[in-house]
Nucleic acid binder design. Structure first.
Lengths: 204, 204
DNA sequence: CGTCTTCCTGACCAATTGGTCAAACCTTTT
DNA sequence: AAAAGGTTTGACCAATTGGTCAGGAAGACG
């Protein structure tokens, strides 16, 4: 499956350094705004050496994006039928917010990609991601039918959760510009989002 | 005030065509991902002719961003003390959603800018925008103190409204990839967001 | 019609950038 | 130690790109 798996120690170390550097650079400047020289310099390698490990700039970008997908979709996969519906979804909100806090670069990498039309991940969105979301939408509709969740559109619920949580990573400059460099911003956001979704989802 | 105001008919027409084309191109590819040739071609002009009206690529970008700010902040300015608090905020949500529907390119232009660190609008964020938001936060806190609104953090409320509404413009590719090219997506979103914020804001 | 100003363009330039390549440099193996 | 295979780089290339410039075309105006 992974024909690109590193064999030697040196390969493992360098490909990891390249991907780390590329994440740093791509997430700040987007694909077209980034240069191989920046990535090479950040990784502590020469440009031709980058291209010894990856055939092209685009290959690095694709490797980054696809390598990140599991991490990104994990929390949604974890939404299961067992347990209280409201608490399950609130848990999903919190784990997405946690990811925005811990992996802002990854979030911005995807944001950059999608804002610009998702040229390299459209297939994934329309395929596996859509399937996963549709599957969870069915689960949510079941909860609603059972009266365990207030009636809401499952798709738009999921969209709003993505939007509100990733906002703190993708638009961090704006958030900090308005709030000041408050250390508490993620904790305050957690409390607000808990209230927001608890109110909207608790059946009356 | 506006030393750049077009004088002749031709100037008016061409600067408008350039800004329109630049909006189209910048909002799809970001600043660094766009080229003067693309903008020129889209505007139906030659590249040197672009640079006859604007001194540089960056000048076009800045002109676009600053020219859009009033449009962008209008709805928030319209949040006033008179009227019912819950309905006022719900109205703000709907007008922001309406803007995402009508002006998705403008929204993506800002999204691109901010995701990449807002190099050209950080001053506006930390200055006028912060002031406006802080002012409305005071208003909201007043409503809460009067028991006319459920107690929520005003700043995070505003962030979440921005996030949920602009999501439908900025991440439209994702939304459509999952929903299919549904014509109703904005109407469904309007209903969902109305429920979401009505639940969270109505005092109990 | 003639002049003055505005508008427009082909040709050009320097810098940047993704990518190539032959040669050198390590390591590991035999 | 020598062959063998993996690793690294300086030099180089072609394409792209933001921007310049001299001069020509087109209005505006007397």
């Amino acid at each position: 499956m992974d024909g690109k798996a590193p064999r030697t120690r040196i390969q493992e170390k360098n490909t990891a350094a390249i991907l780390e550097a590329a994440l740093e650079v791509f997430s700040q400047a987007g694909f077209r705004g980034s240069t191989l020289d920046q990535i090479a310099k950040t990784a502590g390698l020469s440009k031709p050496n980058l291209l010894y490990y990856f055939p092209s700039k685009e290959a690095i970008h694709v490797a980054l994006l696809s390598g990140m997908l599991d991490l990104w979709l994990g929390p949604l996969r974890a939404v299961e039928a067992s347990g209280d519906p409201v608490e399950t979804i609130l848990g999903y909100v919190q784990s997405k917010l946690q990811m925005a806090r811990e992996f802002p670069r990854e979030s911005r990498l995807f944001a950059n990609e999608i804002v610009q039309g998702a040229p390299r991940v459209l297939g994934i969105i329309e395929g596996p991601l859509k399937e996963l979301v549709d599957e969870k939408a069915v689960l949510i509709r079941g909860w609603i039918a059972a009266g365990r969740l207030a009636p809401v559109d499952p798709h738009h619920l999921i969209f709003s959760i993505w939007a509100t949580t990733q906002h703190y990573a993708d638009f961090d400059v704006q958030v900090q510009g308005i709030l000041g460099p408050s250390e508490a911003r993620f904790d305050d956001a957690a409390a607000f989002l808990d209230h927001l979704y608890r109110s909207a989802l608790t059946p009356r």
